[in-house]
Design a protein around this nucleic acid. Structure first.
Length: 391
DNA sequence: TCTGGGGTCCTAGGACCC
DNA sequence: TCTGGGGTCCTAGGACCC
């Protein structure tokens, strides 16, 4: 027998801008955009005062200023956002430990048990007030019988909304929404669906030709249709956010990088950041990826998997340099990125290492066996005999 | 509107193993 | 002789989300 669930989706409104206003209340009712530069690039966030002028997130700074000349552009302070995000989730845990953070500013709460104590809407009001009183952050809450409906509900009223979306109201409240508002359908898929005559979530739910639909939605076709009917059996998993899958650092270079040396220097900086964050999380990685974007906006990446995890800077920078050599094309570069994946807790690895350590042979001396030992760390040979580094 | 930086998950081909 | 079926891992690229 399936138990009826009550799921909250909690979503901080215009989070970065709200953090800035929380620190500096003078910004509260003034149009604000968060952007690294005030003369170009894009906004990561626009507050609601700015949105009234037709400004929104991801809009070009120039365009935002054209629509709202007195908008204040504030550079992002990620340390502040990280801190406020942690405080936000800590406060939510006062209400339930069944909390799954989904990003820096949103999460899911399984409030099924809690509903025995207090009516969900009353509880939502209490949470909203708690976050506003303690952190000065506006919060929207969606309430539904599963994660998908809770997520769709929280989007329906912002800022400071509380919205219930029941299964029996799916047809009247969710089906009329344009298909681009369905979570998981993005800008590449929308035009394809419209080609099939699918303009609303209801159109998707009732579309008859599944074969045609699978051409665009692939293996996920069935689950999209189920969700369009309001069905979703994914569970709130508090451990999900604790298991980070990858750590990366990338940067766009205005005016491009032109020389190999400048690119290598940039990669060293990116790698340093990644290794530091790897160490902060007490993690080790197995795969290393380098990403390059050329001036024509094409992206290329190369990755390699080691046979053993590592957290050592020398291992990672060596891999980064070799991967980049394979990508380097003597063309100007607009973005470089370094990321590491297949992460493991370093403490766990340490225990494993201790078990095998006594068996590790170390009696080698000539250069070729040294190369073999280096290559043994990778699934494919990285260095060949007679290898010389390019420059 | 000429486009940041952090991520997650999916796909598809190939290597390799049984 | 000329080729099964299942599974895992690796790699490159892409869609999507905030």
């Amino acid at each position: 027998m399936k138990k009826y669930q009550i799921i909250f989706h909690v979503d901080l409104n215009a989070f970065y801008a709200s953090c800035e206003a929380s620190r500096n209340p003078a910004l509260k009712n003034h149009p604000v955009g968060i952007a690294p530069r005030s003369d170009r690039g894009i906004l990561t966030t626009a507050n609601y005062a700015a949105r009234r002028y037709g400004v929104n997130s991801a809009m070009n700074v120039i365009e935002a200023k054209r629509r709202c000349p007195h908008i204040k552009i504030v550079p992002p302070d990620f340390a502040l956002y990280e801190t406020m995000s942690s405080q936000f989730f800590e406060r939510l845990r006062l209400f339930t430990d069944q909390l799954e953070p989904a990003s820096i500013d949103e999460g899911y709460m399984d409030m099924t048990e809690d509903a025995n104590t207090m009516h969900p809407i009353k509880r939502a009001e209490m949470i909203q007030k708690d976050i506003m009183d303690n952190l000065s952050l506006p919060l929207s809450i969606g309430i539904g019988p599963n994660k998908f409906l809770a997520k769709m509900a929280s989007d329906m009223k912002k800022p400071l909304g509380i919205t219930v979306l029941r299964k029996r109201n799916v047809k009247s409240k969710m089906w009329p929404l344009p298909i681009e508002q369905m979570h998981g359908i993005g800008r590449k898929t929308v035009p394809n669906l419209k080609l099939l005559g699918i303009h609303t979530i209801g159109d998707l739910a009732t579309y008859k030709n599944i074969t045609k639909l699978s051409r665009f939605l692939g293996n996920q076709t069935e689950s999209f249709i189920r969700r369009a009917y309001g069905d979703d059996d994914s569970v709130v998993d508090p451990s999900r956010a604790e298991t980070v899958q990858s750590i990366g650092n990338s940067k766009t270079y205005e005016g491009y990088l032109h020389t190999y040396d400048a690119m290598l220097e940039a990669l060293e900086g990116l790698t340093k950041t990644v290794v530091r964050r790897l160490h902060d999380g007490e993690l080790a990685c197995k795969t290393i990826t380098v990403q390059v974007r050329f001036s024509d906006f094409t992206n290329h990446s190369k990755q390699l998997s080691r046979s053993h995890h590592t957290e050592r800077h020398v291992d990672i920078i060596e891999a980064v340099e070799h991967l980049f050599d394979a990508l380097y094309d003597e063309k100007p570069v607009s973005l470089l990125g370094v990321s590491v994946g297949h992460l493991e807790k370093a403490t766990r690895l340490f225990r494993q290492l201790n078990i095998f350590e006594p068996e590790t042979p170390t009696k080698t001396s000539n250069v070729d066996t040294l190369l073999e030992r280096i290559n043994a760390q990778y699934d494919k040979p990285l260095l060949k005999k007679g290898f010389k580094s390019s420059s």
